[in-house]
């Protein structure tokens, strides 16, 4: 009984005003110190580096990136890549997650495992498989020719088709799993209730299903967008230099041309994009758009 009060007291002592030190809290120290030194400090230093060149403080890196149509175009490429990947993943993942959430029993476990398993396979391996599929003598061309869509095999590698095909292939599970976890909690009786009140399927979907599954849409969308905007391996192997992204520029800046300020500025811009995305999504989850009316 007093326990509740003790907890309350602990919570209130968490304020800086009067926090009495407990020796047991020292168990947190190794982890916190490690993450401070090995994670927070390097990231902060990177942000600092983006404002410094050989002559001291300067915005040259940002001027270079944000003032040059070439780099603006690259930022645009990354955003376009992320937007299209996210949109396609949502369009395909939503009905798939819905079916997965509505199936019961052993099949749900099996199908869930089948969605989950590809996630644990190395991205390099999957992308390698994709490059084989995209070859002139690969399975895609094999299917297209044999099904009569085209007469002769065409070049797919290094096209935008193969890029988006690959991106969706690699990141689709990241959309389905958050959607699934929200849809699984959804009470199917709500939909019956809506139907029994005379609402048509479209109306039910727009007014009931979509708003209720919005947290999953936001979570999955944020996840897929933030990892695809930063994707490096898949675009690199599937289109290479023909479709430059921010990741490509960052890697080149450090590994090839050694323009550290350019790389650091690009990294900070990407950091800002991801941070903005995460903040926006947590804001959206707190005030779900569907419940405004």
């Amino acid at each position: 009984m007093t326990l509740a009060r003790d907890d309350l007291a602990v919570a209130s002592t968490a304020k800086p005003a009067r926090w009495s030190f407990d020796a047991k809290a020292l168990i947190a120290a190794p982890g916190l110190i490690f993450m401070g030194l090995a994670f927070a400090v390097p990231v902060l230093m990177l942000i600092g580096d983006s404002f410094v060149d050989r002559d001291g403080l300067s915005l040259a890196g940002y001027r270079k990136v944000l003032g040059d149509p070439y780099y603006i175009g690259i930022i645009g490429n990354s955003l376009q890549l992320a937007c299209i990947t996210t949109a396609v993943c949502l369009a395909v993942g939503y009905p798939a997650a819905w079916a997965l959430a509505r199936i019961r029993g052993v099949w749900q476990v099996i199908l869930f495992a089948l969605i989950f398993l590809p996630l644990t396979v190395s991205i390099v391996v999957k992308t390698f498989g994709l490059t084989i599929m995209m070859r002139r003598d690969g399975i895609i061309n094999f299917l297209l020719v044999n099904l009569g869509f085209i007469e002769r095999p065409m070049r797919l590698v290094f096209t935008e088709f193969s890029l988006y095909f690959g991106m969706v292939n690699v990141f689709l599970p990241f959309m389905i799993l958050p959607l699934y976890s929200v849809m699984r909690m959804l009470d199917p009786r709500l939909l019956d209730a809506s139907a029994s009140l005379g609402a048509g399927p479209v109306h039910t979907f727009l007014r009931v299903t979509l708003p209720l599954t919005m947290p999953g849409v936001i979570a999955g969308g944020t996840l897929v967008f933030s990892i695809s905007v930063a994707a490096y391996v898949t675009p690199g192997l599937l289109v290479g230099d023909r479709f430059m992204t921010m990741s490509q520029v960052m890697a080149k800046a450090y590994l090839n041309i050694r323009d550290f300020q350019l790389g650091a500025s690009m990294a900070v811009i990407m950091l800002v994009i991801s941070a903005a995305l995460i903040l926006a999504s947590s804001y959206l989850v707190r005030t779900p758009g569907g419940e405004r009316r």
């Binding site: 009905p95 798939a96 079916a99 089948l114 391996v125 999957k126 498989g129 292939n169």
Partner: peptide, 24 residues
Amino acid sequence: FGSLFCRLVLGFVIVFLFLPILIV
């Protein structure tokens, strides 16, 4: 029809996800 459509998409998705893995 809606649920049938969703199941078809799920089946397609699983084949699609496994393609590169099976190819390798």
